[in-house]
Write a protein that binds this DNA or RNA. Structure first.
Length: 818
DNA sequence: GCGATACTCACTGAG
DNA sequence: TGAGTATCGC
């Protein structure tokens, strides 16, 4: 985040005396920000509204601690939600204090916990090389367990079991503590408890933690081994937590453990360096670390994942004597955008009133648009993007948000067709692709042979003729002889399987052994930095995995080979950045990267992402799409306690990302599961004062021009149309008519010339030149102004007779030359 | 054990 | 629509 008023012109002349050291940190701050940077005490809560400069405040606070010699870098622990946010904070602190920033822990909850767990794993029965199971991995394991326990008969699905286990772990419950309170006379409950316990046993046996365990087991470690906890309490004297409103109970407990005072008896290695500002050196015990948290309960959007808003609302009770600082001035958005945001969030009743304000002036009006279909809506977005681009706004300053990932497809189709460069944050993640997971499973099989899931995964990849029967035989053999699944692979002759399969197993075993020598050289030798990449290449090549893909005639396999190349490149990159990184470090990094992390804006393309991913980001122009009932608020949220309110916060997060221009759009019909259904405008739209919105095409317009006489929509027109609304019907929102009072619009839609479809055609090598006239399926006739680009990426700039100026990707546009 | 085909079910959200 | 799974014939 960048907030203009905080950017300080570099002072001329050398920064000579210590007295002036803090000047550049403090200048340009408003009084609240100043207090947030300079307050010293055991606990500080910074309530930071959207765009109020919290990142600046946090980084300056850290810099000020370091510059004032109040803390060594190693005594600072700063927690963020994404690796990207962590990297950004590290960079900004480095910009303020230079070298002194090294040695700080600035990381996510998950990475910090992995670091601690790797160090301490042996204390409680794990090894340093434990595996991290992502949700897909644990889903697979739970699926097996549900099957083994025949639990589907009790209505337990893998998804529900996984969800419940995750929730419980976020509450720091285990199967035993849960069983104590559960109704164990219910057979489904008993089954669930069995599976939960079994799941945990399997994880332990596999030397693995799932995502939730990373936090929960660290808390457990601290509680079970106070001496271990004390070393970290001594070390971290200043703990700062960002996005505190999204912490769950386990994370809260972790922070609590870390900020406890240290009991007196143990020696204190840090007491002698004179850095302890809170206590005299002779004190018998060490006070708890100083805690700073930053958050905004209006931006809490992860309750579904266990985030507990009470962590922030009850902070003052949890940490008596805490100071609270409120940052309400917004440095990001224009007043129109903020007024809309305030109006929307004001409908949540259980919040402390807080009004964002800006001194940047009203700015442009919010633009509203209703499309007939999602394609139509997407075309509006694409057109508007092009208009802003022509007006000088770079693509990288624009973003399109949607509620669910599936909405991105229609947008993508139109963007491709309109030759708008874009990139999608999220969706199918690189590390969730099958081939990457296979490659990872190979690496894990070497790094952590106890992880049976991974070994089983690669057993028959590539095909070695090993099916269920052989797999079970191996498992039985291992069990009978008290050895691990992995070890059983090294004695294929004794498994009682055919010679061909024996050879396959022997070959796999040999490859894994060879890779082990590269990745984990025996007896204390330090592997060279390139070992991870080398080991990976060897595994992929000698296992026959790559050859099998290359030999395949499935066109997708070509892309898979490229992905694997990319993955090897990631490993080489890793070696470059971490010369001493081990295979375990590499696997950690890979397991913990997330979508929000690879946002990189240099490429000059429009960003598309879900509103969840958008948190913490900002853009000059923002398009919030699909502002419809059942989408935002999402249908499923209605059944959850606090669901609709969380949806409203999510919408609020979306609109407060915009600096200058905000667009809200929806479609009257939306296709899902291949079927077209009618959509209704979101209730949130009604909560925005009508005078702030310039409707290019309101829901009412679509309705009347579509020839539909729906009372439901006409009744709402006052709120949507024309900007002259009295707001009289703004409170009628809750009485939405049943959906079937609307007939699908599709029957009458066919009349409309600007109905845009997702149609694509392969024009092969159609030649166009300036001056040509063409006909487009959706836009009608037009004249080519210019042609740019090369080969498959040639773009026609066309002036349509009625639809205006458009860019078209010639290869796929539904056009013909006249 | 494998590959092709038919069929089913799902789309919140994310670490 | 399209990914994932069950079923079947080889």
């Amino acid at each position: 985040m960048t907030e203009a008023p905080l950017i300080v012109p570099s002072t001329s002349g050398p920064r000579a005396s210590a007295a002036h050291d803090q000047d550049d940190l403090l200048s340009g701050l408003n009084p609240q920000q100043l207090a947030a940077v300079t307050y010293r005490g055991p606990a500080l809560l910074i309530v930071a509204g959207a765009g109020s400069g919290k990142t600046s405040v946090l980084t300056r606070r850290i810099a000020s601690l370091l510059r004032g010699r109040e803390a060594w870098p190693s005594q600072i622990l700063a927690i963020t939600f994404t690796n990207k946010a962590a990297g950004e904070m590290r960079e900004r602190v480095a910009g303020l204090v230079g070298e002194a920033s090294r040695g700080m822990w600035i990381s996510t909850f998950h990475s910090a916990c992995v670091r601690i767990l790797r160090r301490e794993a042996e204390q409680f029965g794990f090894t340093k090389s434990f595996t991290i199971y992502d949700s897909g991995d644990s889903r697979a394991l739970i699926k097996r367990l549900v099957k083994d326990h025949e639990a589907d008969a009790y209505g337990l699905t893998p998804a529900s079991v996984q969800g419940r286990i995750s929730k419980l772990k976020n509450e720091l419950q285990d199967s035993e503590s849960y069983a104590r309170d559960a109704n164990m006379s219910d057979p489904a409950e008993r089954k669930f408890v069995e599976i939960f316990a079994d799941y945990q046993r399997r994880l332990r046996k596999a030397n693995a933690f799932d995502f939730d365990d990373l936090i929960g087991q660290t808390v457990y470690l601290f509680r079970a081994f106070p001496k271990v906890a004390d070393t970290y309490r001594r070390r971290f004297r200043h703990i700062l937590v960002d996005e505190y409103q999204d912490t769950n109970h386990a994370q809260y407990a972790l922070i609590h453990e870390l900020t406890r005072p240290v009991s007196a008896d143990a020696p204190d290695p840090y007491a002698s360096n004179g850095m302890m500002i809170f206590e005299p050196e002779t004190a018998p015990e060490l006070e708890g670390a100083s805690l700073t948290v930053v958050g905004d309960s209006d931006q809490s959007i992860y309750a579904f994942r266990g985030a507990d808003i009470r962590n922030i609302s009850e902070f003052e009770r949890d940490f008596p004597g805490a100071r609270v600082v409120l940052l309400e001035q917004n440095y990001r958005s224009t007043q129109n955008i903020l007024s809309a945001a305030n109006a929307v969030i004001g409908n949540n009743f259980d919040r402390k009133d807080k009004k964002l304000w800006s001194d940047r002036g009203d700015g442009d009006m919010i633009v509203g648009f209703t499309g007939y279909s999602q394609h139509d809506e997407a075309q509006f977005v694409a057109d508007e993007v092009e208009m802003l681009r022509r007006a000088g706004m770079p693509y990288s300053e624009m973003a399109v948000f949607y509620r669910t990932n599936s909405q991105s497809r229609a947008l993508e189709e139109i963007f491709i067709r309109s030759a708008v460069p874009y990139k999608i944050m999220g969706g199918t993640k690189f590390y969730e692709r099958a081939e990457i997971k296979d490659a990872l499973a190979y690496l894990i099989s070497v790094a952590n042979p106890a992880d049976e899931m991974s070994v089983r995964r690669i057993l028959n990849k590539p095909r070695r003729g090993i099916g269920d029967v052989t797999e079970t035989a191996i498992a039985r053999f291992a069990e009978d002889h008290g050895i691990s699944f992995r070890e059983a692979l090294s004695m294929p002759a004794q498994l009682g399987v055919g010679p061909k399969i024996q050879a396959g197993i022997a070959q796999l075993d040999a490859v894994l052994k060879e890779a082990t020598e590269i990745l984990l050289p025996a007896s204390g030798e330090v592997p060279p930095p390139t070992s991870v990449a080398d080991g990976l290449s060897l595994l992929l090549a000698k296992s026959g995995y790559l050859d099998a893909l290359r030999a395949s005639r499935d066109p997708q396999d070509e892309a898979r080979v490229e992905n694997l190349d990319e993955f090897v490149a990631v490993a080489r990159d890793f070696a470059r950045n971490n010369p001493e990184g081990t295979i375990a470090d590499f696997l950690t990094e890979v397991a913990l990267v997330s979508d929000a992390d690879d946002l990189d804006d240099e490429s000059g393309s429009v960003s598309m992402m879900t509103m969840h991913t958008a948190k913490g980001l900002e853009y000059d122009a923002v398009f919030v799409t699909g502002v419809e009932e059942d989408l935002i608020p999402h249908r499923i949220s209605a059944g959850e306690p606090g669901g609709p309110q969380e949806e409203r916060r999510l919408f609020y997060v979306g609109i407060t990302r915009a600096r200058k221009r905000l667009h809200l759009s929806l479609a009257m019909t939306r296709a899902q599961f291949g079927e077209v259904s009618v959509a209704m405008p979101s209730r949130f739209l009604q909560e925005i004062p009508a005078e702030l919105v310039d409707w290019r095409q309101s829901p009412g317009d679509v309705n009347s021009r579509g020839g539909m006489q729906s009372r439901a929509l006409n009744a709402r027109r006052g709120g949507f149309g024309g900007g002259s609304s009295s707001g009289g019907d703004r409170f009628g929102v809750k009485k939405l008519p049943p959906r079937d009072s609307l007939k699908p619009l599709s029957t009458s839609m066919d009349k409309f010339t600007n109905k845009v479809t997702g149609k694509v055609r392969d024009n092969g090598d159609l030649e166009l030149a300036a001056g040509d006239r063409i006909r487009h399926d959706d836009f009608g006739e037009g004249r080519v102004d210019a042609v740019t680009g090369e080969g498959a990426k040639r773009i026609a700039h066309v002036r349509f007779d009625s639809a205006g100026l458009k860019k078209l990707l010639i290869k796929i546009a539904p056009i013909e030359k006249l």
